[in-house]
């Protein structure tokens, strides 16, 4: 899962990015509205943490631009301004959630996870696919109740499949959502991760659709 953090205060930006990375997200950072808007326009993020008081272009304007351009990724607004008029303006501009400073990082992580989960259509924080279950809060994976240990990258790939079950996910899409923009991307590594997941979980869990990508579903079907 790939998250964009747009925050002008370097200390806070570092903290948020670090916490998100530690929670298993790939994180891109933008220090101002202009760069933030550009990244949001060009990269496929699963969620955005957006500060409102930003240099160059303010957060509300950035959000409005994204929504008019048809970008519908979930956006969590982060702001020091906690007046209701700001909240109303934020939600009217297309925000999905709102967090006022100061906040606890755990709260932020929980909200981001919930946003991603809900935008993929899942109500519960525990995602299930056949025998496999993923607790998004702790990043814990079990198969038939037995816990499985995965590396950070394996978990990212699995998490993406668990969020987007029953549909074909292309290799490019997977790469875009697993790595942040600075990562040296190599499509071969994806094949390696999928092979390892099949080995650790179940051989027929992830199906290959030649030339199109992969799919994961409880019934073993993919469209």
């Amino acid at each position: 899962m790939r998250v964009l953090v747009v925050e002008d205060e370097p200390g806070l930006r570092r903290q948020v990015s670090r916490a998100l990375s530690e929670a298993g997200f790939s994180v891109d950072e933008a220090p101002d509205g202009e760069e933030g808007e550009f990244l949001g326009d060009t990269e496929p993020y699963d969620a955005v943490v957006l500060d409102l008081g930003l240099p160059k272009i303010d957060g509300i304007t950035v959000l409005k631009h994204w929504r008019t351009a048809g970008r519908d990724m979930p956006v969590l607004i982060l702001t020091a301004r906690d007046g209701w008029n700001e909240k109303v303006a934020g939600f009217d501009a297309g925000a999905d959630d709102y967090l006022t400073k100061p906040f606890h990082v755990e709260e932020l992580l929980a909200r981001v996870r919930a946003l991603i989960r809900r935008s993929a259509g899942h109500a519960s924080p525990i995602l299930e696919c056949g025998p496999v279950s993923l607790d998004t809060r702790a990043g814990k994976v079990t198969i038939d109740g037995a816990s499985v240990t995965l590396t950070a990258h394996e978990l990212k790939v699995l998490s993406y499949f668990m969020h987007h079950q029953d549909r074909v996910v292309s290799q490019t899409e997977l790469i875009e959502h697993i790595y942040d923009q600075d990562f040296d991307r190599d499509s071969n590594t994806i094949e390696v991760f999928i092979a390892r997941l099949r080995k650790k979980l179940a051989p027929d869990l992830i199906k290959t659709h030649r030339g199109r990508g992969y799919s994961m579903s409880a019934t073993g079907e993919g469209t």
Binding site: E9, G11, L12, Q15, A19, G53, T79, A80, R81, T100, K101, P102, F103, H104, V105
Partner: peptide
Amino acid sequence: AHALKTPLAVLSNE
């Protein structure tokens, strides 16, 4: 408030 709250957020998370 904005100026105070961001450092407060950093401090509280630290």
